[in-house]
Design a protein around this nucleic acid. Structure first.
Length: 337
DNA sequence: AAACGGCACAACCGCTCTTCA
DNA sequence: TTGAAGAGCGGTTGTGCCGTT
């Protein structure tokens, strides 16, 4: 784990020391002369934030709320670009940000999530309350990746660096889990929500983080494939069947699904998906593109034998189910042997 | 005591995606 | 349909601190 001095360093760096901007700090972030700063406007301050700037930003957001980052600095009386303000707020000033050491259980969770999700820091951070993507990214790069390497594990693939020292079965485990999660993440990534809430919807990116309860509570969502054609997945019974709509809380499904994978319990994943289907009455899929036909009432079992290409969309929880079922079958086979 | 290197983390950049006029 | 603006993400850099030589 981390040694005590690092925490004090972190605290110091997070407050006073980093805010004592030396003349050289104005060069921060500009590597060489080729890179263009995000804020080319003359007069905008860069580098470490001062306590005064923090106060201005925090007070303004407390009063006016988040958003409109481009205009915020001017309104708040800050000589910063909006991007810088947003980053400062998100990674440091937000009340929900938890400071201090990463606990062992958090570290374990980061490892598990990274094994499943890769460098999707925001997604990982979304499942660790109070931690920011930047913090987790830093912690990974400075601690965990090195730790894994010292254990003979490739931090990118989570497989042994020396392929002679592991079994094919172990590979299969990792592969199947990764495929499951890749499909689910892809499902999420391709999911665009139609928020029924009339208030300005938060960015879709937040959906990936699972950070916004208003999104978790959404009733309707639509899907868009990578090539911008539209497709729909209906999970659930009642309600209208407008194209592009999905009438169940897919985020909950995803969340439960991910939780199960984190806990390395593929049977629970399968069970949860099946329960979701039973609860909602059916699973149906349909493509909303030209000439598409509805494919009604497919069971999870049949769904698990289908490929995404069957429907013309490139990802789905259904595929995850297939992978999980394969896992189940493999284990069953092994048991019988 | 000074120099050096590694560590930790805040901050920045380029890019991508979504929204909206 | 398209382009501009807004927002967010992952990768990278810069800086201060600390331990070692």
């Amino acid at each position: 784990m981390r040694n005590p001095p690092s925490s004090s360093k972190a605290t110091a760096a997070a407050s006073a020391t980093m805010t004592t901007a030396s003349p050289s700090s104005s060069k921060a972030g500009i590597a060489g002369g080729s890179k263009t700063p995000c804020c080319v406007k003359v007069g905008l301050k860069r580098g470490p934030w001062t306590p005064e700037e923090d106060e201005l930003l925090a007070n303004y957001i407390k009063k006016e709320g988040e958003g409109r980052w481009r205009t915020l600095p001017k309104q708040a009386g800050l000589l910063r670009c909006g991007k810088s303000c947003r980053l400062r707020w998100m990674n440091y000033l937000r009340p929900s940000v938890k400071r201090g050491q990463i606990a062992p259980d958090e570290e374990d969770l980061i490892l598990r999530l990274h094994r499943l999700l890769g460098n999707r820091w925001s997604l990982i951070a979304g499942r660790i309350p109070g931690r920011t993507d930047n913090e987790i990214k830093n912690y990974w790069n400075t601690h965990l990746s090195k730790k894994l390497i010292s254990q003979g594990i490739d931090p990118r693939t989570h497989k042994p660096l020396n392929p002679d020292h592991h079994s094919a079965a172990a590979d299969a485990d990792v592969d199947n889990t990764n495929k499951s999660v890749a499909a689910a993440v892809s499902f999420k990534a391709n999911t665009r929500f139609s928020n029924p809430n009339p208030s300005p919807p938060p960015s879709d990116r937040l959906v990936h983080q699972g950070a916004d309860p208003s999104i978790n509570a959404m009733g309707t969502l639509s899907l868009r494939t990578n090539n911008n054609s539209h497709a729909g997945v209906l999970l659930g019974g009642g309600g209208n069947e407008e194209d592009e709509d999905i009438n169940c809380c897919a985020d909950d499904v995803f969340s439960s699904f991910l939780n199960s994978l984190i806990n390395e319990d593929p049977f629970a994943v399968q069970h949860q998906l099946q329960q979701q289907v039973l609860h909602n009455g059916n699973v149906s899929t349909h493509a909303a593109g030209a000439g598409s036909d509805h494919v009604p009432l497919i069971s999870m079992t049949s769904a698990s034998t289908m490929t995404p290409s069957t429907f013309g969309w490139d990802s789905a929880v259904l595929m995850s189910s297939a992978f999980i079922q394969n896992d189940h079958q493999r284990v069953t086979d092994q048991t019988e042997q």
